[in-house]
């Protein structure tokens, strides 16, 4: 390990963190703006031009609100809950390949923090860890409604991890590798995108991503209108802000995942035919990747303002009785196609 290598990775980590935090921040504004447009309104437009300073105002408000820790709460765990939530949300972006290599002064810089060879599983593990933040927060509040909310959130999260994992398995059978870097590199051009090979898998993955991010139509952990607020009932000030924030970071990361796993990541059509230099291809690739991510974030919000919420038994029914069998059927189908392809073509 040379010093330059560590420095390079450090810079990359800082950039990735900053970008994901800023995007999460502005997702809140985007969400409200999109909600407004879809309901024939303007959305927030008072702070700055077109409401551009709104997230800063919201953040400031969160910091200055009164911090309340309930008397009966378990204090260390009460603080640990939102901390874990935001940490797990942040570290999952470590294995996402943001772009190809960039040559700066004869030095090749890989635009990925860590290309570990079990990258997909790593993300899966971190997502599984995210449940702890919710469960601890709910339990430590010493409030039965928080606890029920936490249990509801955790069981939803665990249930939807299974079809998510199964849909990824079908994808891995196609790609033959667990490394995120290689999975994206395989999808160069337009025809090689995994969405063409795994449409059902993508659908399952997307539905599960919605559920894992607690987004509508699966936002039962906190449904504001009919339940008190779920696991973060007792939270106020920036602790509540951290929970909200982690949700938006999760949305960003799962959008990045969907773009990377199924929609070719930084690959774009005719990337080598246009006769651009390596660095330009990389830079355009990164931009294209972010364009895809923003597309998915938009889709998340679009769905939120379209679909109503599931009832809890419907949610569980969808997860266990439809998605899991469908995902297993998808695995079998994929395996059959691969065998036929390998033997006859």
């Amino acid at each position: 390990m040379e010093g330059a290598f560590i420095l390079e990775k450090l810079i990359l980590v800082v950039i990735v963190f900053t970008i994901s935090l800023v995007i999460a921040m502005y997702s809140t504004l985007a969400e409200r703006k999109i909600a407004g447009f879809m309901q024939d309104r303007h959305g927030p437009n008072r702070a700055g031009f077109g409401g551009i300073l709104q997230p800063l105002c919201d953040g400031g408000k969160f910091f200055f609100k009164e911090e309340i820790i309930p008397a009966g709460a378990h204090k260390p765990l009460f603080v640990l809950g939102p901390t874990l939530a935001i940490i797990t949300a942040c570290i999952s972006s470590a294995v996402i390949p943001w772009g190809q290599t960039l040559t700066i002064g004869g030095r090749e810089v890989v635009l990925q923090v860590a290309d570990i060879n079990v990258g997909v599983l790593y993300i899966f593990g971190v997502v599984a860890l995210g449940v702890y933040g919710i469960m601890l927060g709910g339990w430590a509040s010493n409030n039965k409604f928080s606890l029920m909310g936490a249990v509801r959130a955790a069981s939803q999260s665990i249930s939807y991890e299974i079809p998510m994992g199964l849909s990824i398995i079908a994808l891995l059978m196609v790609t033959g590798t667990l490394s995120m870097g290689e999975i994206v590199a395989q999808q160069s051009g337009f025809v090689n995108w995994n969405i063409w090979a795994q449409p059902i898998g993508f659908l399952i993955f997307m539905v599960c991503a919605f559920a894992e991010c607690n987004r509508v139509p699966f936002d039962l952990p906190e449904c504001e209108t009919e339940l008190i607020g779920g696991y973060h009932t007792e939270y106020s000030s920036m602790k509540l802000g951290l929970y909200m924030f982690s949700e938006y970071i999760n949305m960003f990361v799962s959008s990045a995942l969907m773009a990377a796993l199924y929609f070719g990541g930084y690959n774009f059509p005719f990337m080598y035919e246009l006769g651009l230099s390596e660095n330009w291809i990389t830079i355009i690739g990164v931009l294209v990747f972010f364009l895809k991510i923003f597309g998915f974030i938009f889709f998340f919000m679009w769905v939120r303002w379209t679909l109503p919420r599931f009832r809890y038994d419907q949610l569980m029914g969808l997860g266990w009785k439809i998605l899991i069998p469908l995902a297993i059927a998808n695995i079998v189908l994929t395996a059959a196609v691969i065998i036929v392809k390998d033997t006859y073509f």
């Binding site: 860890l129 449940v131 469960m135 936490a150 249990v151």
Partner: peptide
């Protein structure tokens, strides 16, 4: 991610 969450679940 799975087993301990279920443990925690029951205990809570």
């Amino acid at each position: 991610g799975a087993i301990m969450v279920l443990f925690l679940f029951v205990l809570m």
